[in-house]
Nucleic acid binder design. Sequence first.
DNA 1: GCGAAGCATTAGCGCGCGCTAATGGGCCCA
DNA 2: TGGGCCCATTAGCGCGCGCTAATGCTTCGC
Lengths: 346, 346
Amino acid sequence: MTPNVLSNRYAVAVPVTQSDVALRAGVSRALVSLVFRDATNVSDQSRARVLLAAKELGYRPNMLARSLASKKVRTIGVLLNDITNPFFVSMYVELSDAAQDAGYDVLVGPGLRSVAQERTLLGTLLGHRVAGLILISPLIKASELNRIIAGYPAVSIARDMNLDGADFVSNDELVGARLGLRHLVDLGHERIVHISGGSSRSAVHRKRAFLRAMSELGLAGSARVIEGDFTEEAGRSAAREIIRGRADETAIFASNDLVAVGAMGVLEASGVRVPEDVSVLGYDNSVISDLQMISLTSIEQPLRDFGRASIRLLLERIDGERDTRVSLEFEPRLIVRRTTARRATH
Amino acid sequence: MTPNVLSNRYAVAVPVTQSDVALRAGVSRALVSLVFRDATNVSDQSRARVLLAAKELGYRPNMLARSLASKKVRTIGVLLNDITNPFFVSMYVELSDAAQDAGYDVLVGPGLRSVAQERTLLGTLLGHRVAGLILISPLIKASELNRIIAGYPAVSIARDMNLDGADFVSNDELVGARLGLRHLVDLGHERIVHISGGSSRSAVHRKRAFLRAMSELGLAGSARVIEGDFTEEAGRSAAREIIRGRADETAIFASNDLVAVGAMGVLEASGVRVPEDVSVLGYDNSVISDLQMISLTSIEQPLRDFGRASIRLLLERIDGERDTRVSLEFEPRLIVRRTTARRATH
DNA sequence: GCGAAGCATTAGCGCGCGCTAATGGGCCCA
DNA sequence: TGGGCCCATTAGCGCGCGCTAATGCTTCGC
C-alpha cells in the first residue's frame, strides 16, 4: 500500500515561474527576465538554454506580475454599450485587430443598453488598470463619465461628449445624409421620411443632418421625421404609421439598418413593394444589409478607419505624446444595393 | 516667473494605492485590505473612515496585485473561433452574464476562423493566468489543444474533442434533426436536402444526425446532402446547384441560419417561392432568423443553458470540486416561422 | 484591583516579475 | 604576470495587495 500513488489522471496546472526556469537552466532568475524582455547583453548560449528550459517547462510570462512590476499595462479596455448590435461588434473586431498590432490586449465591457451596467463595467475595466479606454457610444452622461475617468487616456467613438481628456472619433453625419439623400433625389424622390434613432446624442445628430441636407437640396418642405429608436421594432412601427397615414412619401431614410429592415418587413407584408413603390435606405452597412435577401442600400461607416484611428489616438495619450483633445470625422460611403430605385411615375 | 505652474489642463490619472488610503484614513495598510475584503473584526468606525478616504481619493482595488497576492484570478478566458457569427456572439453574452453573477470577469479571445490566430489568443489568455478557459467551437486540433491547456480547467462548447481535462457542453444534434425533420414530414415533405456545414467536427455531427433522423423516418432513400460550410455563400451555391439540377426536393434542412438565408436569396431571385414551392429550415435561431423580412423557421440552441452550464462546470473544476469529465447535451427547440409550409400538391 | 477573555489593529512575509547598481570572470595587451 | 577593460551575470529592492501571527487595548467578572 503506497497511499502516495493516487490515480492522478488529471494533471493539475502547476504554475511555472521564472524561478523554475532559472533553476532548470542553471542561471539566475534575473537572467531569465532579461531573456524574456529581449534585452541585449545576454550570450547566445545562455539565451538558448533559458528558452529551452522555458519550453520544456511550458513557462509563459505572467502578465499580472509583469504589469505590476513594470507599472505598464498592455491592455486596453473597450466599453461597448450594446453588444447585440452587429455594427458595434464589427467595430470591436477592428479595434481588437489594431490593438493587437500595437502589442496590446483588449478587455471588453459588453453592455446591453443599461446605464447601471455600464457603470459596473467601467469599474471592472478600471480595476484591471487598463492602459486606456475606448468608449463605444456610451450611455452614461458626460458629466459622470468625466468624473469617473478623470485623467485617464480615453477615446470616444460615435458619441461626442466633450470630455476634456477624451478624443473623439466618428463619421461625418452631414456627409452621410448628403450621400444618401442625393442618391434618392437623383432617383426622382422628393418626399422623404426619416425614421429617427431616438433621443440619444448620436441619433439626434443624425436627424439634424437629415434635416439640414434636405434643406440644402431645397426640400425642407417635404422632409418628415418619425421618431423611433435603433431597433427593428421601431422600423416596423414607423412603417405602420406611414401606411396608415397614406402619406405620399416615396422614400425612407432610416437611422440604421435594423430600422430599415423592420420597415421593409411591414411594407412588403402590406403589399407595398420595395423598391418599386418605396425606396429604403439604411445606415451602417452592417452585415445584415449585405444578405442577399435584404440587399439594403446603406451608408457605410468606415469601421476600419475608426478602429485604427482610435487606437492610434489612445496610444498617443498613453505614451504621453499628446495632451490636447482631438476630434476626427471620417467620411462615410454610399453602398447601393437593391432597395433603392427610380421613383415610379404615376 | 514660476516655471512650476504649468497649464495642467489635463489631470494625469495618479494611481491611488491602498497605502494612500491608509495614510488618509490614519490606519494601517492591512486594515484597508481587510475592509475591502469584507473581513469581520473591523469596527464600524474604522470601516467608515476607510471607505470615506477611499471614495475621496477615488481608490479602486488593483485587480492585478490582488490576483498576484491571493493567487486567485477572478477572470475567465473565452476563446471564440468566429466573432462575426451572431450565434457565437449571443453565446458570449450569456457566458459573460453567468460569469459576472459568479463574480468573475471575462477576457475574450476573438478569433476569425484562423488556427494560427487561435494559438496566439490562447497564449494571451494563458499569459493572463485566467482561472479557466471556455472554448467555443475551437479550430485547433484536439491533440495540440490538449497539450497547450494541459491540466487547465476548461469547458468546450459545440465541439467535442475528448479532452481529458475539458468538460463538454452542446446541443443534442439528433433531437434537433428529429424536431426539424418531423416538422417537415408533418407538412408533407419527403425529399429533403441538407446543406452541410463542411468538414468541421460539429458540421459532420449535424450531417450525421440529419441522415440518421431521415432513416428513422423511413426516408433514407430520399435524403440528399450538398456539401458546404457555415457561410451565406455556401447556401447560395447550394441553392444554385439545387435549381440547376432540377431536383425534386421540396424542403431544405440547412446547417445554420446563414446558410438558409443564402439559399433563400437565390431561390427567390430565381422565381422559386419560399415556402410555397420549397420549405427552408435553419439552425441556431440566431437574430437574423427573427427579422420579419426573413422570418426563418429554425432550431433554437439553448444558449442560456449553454452559458449557465459552462460557467458552472468550469467553476466546479476551478474550485477543485470535481476531477472527472462531464458532458452535457441540451435539447434544442423548434421555432416555427414563415419559411416552412405544407407541401404543394401538384 | 487583577487576570482573563475578547476584540481591533498592526507588523511583516510572500506573490512573480522589472529593473539597476554591483559583482564576477574572461580576455587581451604590454 | 599584472593591469585594465568589457561583457555576462547576479543580488536586491520595489510594484500593490493577501494573509496571519502577534500585539495592544478594552471590558468584564470576581
